[in-house]
Amino acid sequence: MSISRIHGVFDGAAVEPPLSKFEVKFTPLDLIAHWKRCGMTADFLAYFIAYAFENPKAALNTLSTVINELLENAVKFSANKREPVVLSFDHFGDTIRIETCNTCSGAITQRFDSFLQRLGSEDIEDLFIAQIEQNAATNRSESGLGLITMVKDHNSNLAVSIRPLEVGDAHEVRVRVTLNANEVDQS
């Protein structure tokens, strides 16, 4: 039987309530049907968040990149394309937390799990090169390159919780990115 796994530091409930927060539900099919909606949504939500920053233009790029990456992955790999994926944002003052929650099939979860083990144990620059080479060799874009770039270039703290659901082989996958608010403001 499958067991729950945690990759990275996936802390539980926040000690203090967030200063700012929102939660949006998407039907994956709506984004798969119009793929540009991922980028549009990421840009809009990033603008919404960055608007309150000292240096909105600087924050916009990092926020949009992170939201887009999480949203695209959640949508692409969700098991049921008609079941909502949830994207949530919490601003705790010093830190920003962006998270997606969706269900994945057992096979997808296993692949993701292996990738996360590599991400947690290998040198990120080496892994980045290895994934680029793999992409070029296989013509595949589902290599986690986006997640690697997010951690490498945007100093994101990535944590993932994988929990088997009670029925079938599906798993609940929560991908959480925590950013330093000051760094985002000066990025």
Binding site: L29, I32, A33, H34, W35, K36, K76, K81, R82, N139, S141, E142
Partner: peptide
């Protein structure tokens, strides 16, 4: 009609759709 096509094509072939960012090398 579009949503049935999208659902089947994504499920079977991993294909995404768009009106304006079409890219066969990226599966769109």
């Amino acid at each position: 009609a579009q949503y049935l096509i999208v659902d089947m094509y994504h499920q079977n072939y991993g294909i995404l759709f768009s009106n304006d960012i079409v890219d066969l090398n990226s599966g769109i």
